[in-house]
Design a protein around this nucleic acid. Sequence first.
DNA 1: TCTGGGGTCCTAGGACCC
DNA 2: TCTGGGGTCCTAGGACCC
Length: 378
Amino acid sequence: MRIIAHLDMDAFFASLEEAGSPIFKGLPIAVGSDPKGGLGRGVISTANYKAREYGIHSALPISEAWRLSQKAKAEGKPEVVFLPVDFERYNKASAQVLEIIRKHAKIMEPASIDEFYFDLSYSAPLGRDCALGWKKAEVICKKIKKEIKDKLKVTCSVGIGSNKLIAKIAAGTKKPDGLVIAEEGQEGKFLELMPIRELPGIGPKTEEKLNQQGIKIIKDVRKFSREDLYDLLGKWGLDLYLKARGIDDSPLEENREAKSIGEQATFQHDTLNFIYIGEVFDNLCKSVFKRFLQSGFKTFKTVGITVRFSDFETKTTAKTLKKETKNEKEFTIEALKLLLPYLDKRKNPHKKLIRLIGVKMSCLSADREKLNNQNILI
DNA sequence: TCTGGGGTCCTAGGACCC
DNA sequence: TCTGGGGTCCTAGGACCC
């Protein structure tokens, strides 16, 4: 039996900004793109709990957030503080959290900038009282929470369970600053009354599909056989069959490597101005290549681009080169060759304006020398 | 209200090789 | 002359997550 914890930072970006500047204390804060007086095109990245009282939340269009802020102001409430995303700062904080967790757990998986899994099974040595192990895990998590609060002045929520799925869901049930233990052997019961949307991997589309079958809460999933769920959702249906019963054997993955490096940009105004598009595209390529150099990867083999038109139709094209390369010119030229058809009649016959362009590289190889050694061995 | 930017994983179809 | 099937690589698109 494993004891797995999931730690999820509370409104991470906004909390860090609030903790970093005393003048923001207690105010509604929204981190995201520039609202530009209600004309901005982005979305909210993170809103703190005060801003959530205004109806502002992650992924909300920034223009709507601006409107909500103005409305609150008219009612005599404080205006929302809109702040740009400061990744450097958040990455630093994330690394500090990682360091604190690592002191208490040998096996850990950073799942994102603000989420971490770690294994506390060691607190229940073989042959010892299992309940004691869970108690010890709780004590360790309390310590971790306290250390994070002391050092970073922000809170987090932690879930403890017998696998990653249960731990993650448990952490989400009591935010902010929660600590929830989903007792071993009670996994099925813990989940049964929750809406299916609580299961990671079920988004709007899958939810709708399942609703059509009369499935609303997790318990409802259990009325369907493995075969039924496979027919409905393919391979993911088999996963769902197990997840609905609280079963999840997936291991913690300590050394996950990136599979691609890419960047995209949305224009302030939709455009077909070649010079402007070319300039932005060139900067994207330069920035992606710079990150490639810093990444430690030695080569890439596939170049891809994205074009989003003003009607939100989105096209991607990719080209895998004959040979791996690390050449910047090759990267830029291949990317440009993929982009050009979208600027003229070839792939844009109705001359639709372009909203966004993006570029990425994939098929990254970590270490060419290692690869060569393997070839010699074979 | 009009929809960011960073990613991952899965699927389906076509090309190609044996 | 007609007809396999398996395996792998590649591309495009979709769903999802933070």
